[in-house]
Design a protein around this nucleic acid. Structure first.
Length: 261
DNA sequence: GTTGCCGGGAT
DNA sequence: ATCCCGGCAAC
């Protein structure tokens, strides 16, 4: 078992034609991906790890995936002409697999996580919910390494992909469709589920802009209780039965972390 | 009546 | 730290 897992890991899992896991209609024994190789400083993975904005800076374990040769062109070119190459990352907990095609990612999710047979035709699109597209633009990089001149070809460090932490296991039975995630309001241009915010400068909105009343200096100590968002939360979405599908916060009667306001 | 969740308790 | 619930206010 372990040997099989190791071999399947060492032999780079990017051959789409040969899925590493070709069995199991059982959707509950897959996420044994290897230990997340955390840097020994940030041990705590921030609370209950729900669908909150957690970002991880660990560099990708596969240094050079078999990308098409033109992928080398988007290194540090002019921002105007820079081509943005989209990658697709599996959001399943502990997986985080990155593929270069959406169809490949859908097949991966369908097979490995959803435990379905590979049926390329007629997918109900449920897989779309479990992966996200990565933009390998360099904005976030040049942001931090502002001193990098475009003339230095000695790219010492590989372009660290902005790694989105796979959120809570989206263990949704196929009968319940996640209601309002794919079409996010108008705030984010990313087709990612809520909670995966930009990996740079999370910058939580200070306060939801309350009170147009006369000058109210926000007295410290007063707790005017939040005005209750209008988003449906786990309880409403999944119902009192299926409580096990709620996010942790909802199960503990805390502020929902999956369906933010 | 229902739903979201703060404050607080138990382990 | 994790887990749960009383009780209140917003629906």
């Amino acid at each position: 078992m372990a040997a099989a897992a190791l071999t399947s890991l060492s032999t780079s899992p990017l051959l789409l034609g040969a899925p590493a896991v070709a069995f199991s209609t059982e959707p509950s024994l897959e996420p044994w991906r290897e230990a997340p190789v955390r840097p020994p400083g940030s041990s705590g993975s921030s609370g209950d790890g729900g669908w909150g904005p957690t970002s991880d800076q660990s560099s990708p374990s596969t240094p050079s995936p078999p990308l098409p040769p033109e992928a080398a062109h988007f290194l540090f070119g002019e921002p105007a002409l820079r081509k943005r190459k989209g990658l697709f990352q599996c959001l399943w907990k502990r997986c985080g697999k990155v593929l270069s095609s959406a169809s490949g990612m859908q097949r991966h999710i369908r097979l490995v996580h959803l435990g379905r047979q590979a049926e390329p035709e007629q997918s109900d699109g449920e897989e779309d919910f479990y992966y996200t597209e990565l933009d390998v633009g360099v904005d976030s990089l040049t942001d931090g390494l502002s001193g990098l001149t475009p003339g230095s070809p000695t790219a010492s460090t590989p372009p660290a992909l902005p790694r989105l932490e796979p959120l809570e296991p989206p263990a949704l039975p196929s009968l319940l469709r996640p209601p309002a995630l794919p079409p996010p309001p108008v705030l984010s241009s990313l087709p990612a589920p809520q909670g995966c915010l930009a990996p740079v400068h999370p910058e939580p909105q200070p306060i939801p802009v309350r009170a147009c009343a006369p000058a109210l200096p926000a007295k410290p100590g007063a707790n005017p209780r939040k005005p209750r968002g209008d988003a449906k939360k786990c309880r409403k979405v999944y119902g009192m039965d299926h409580r096990d599908l709620w996010c942790t916060a909802c199960r503990w009667k805390k502020a929902c972390q999956r369906f933010l306001d």
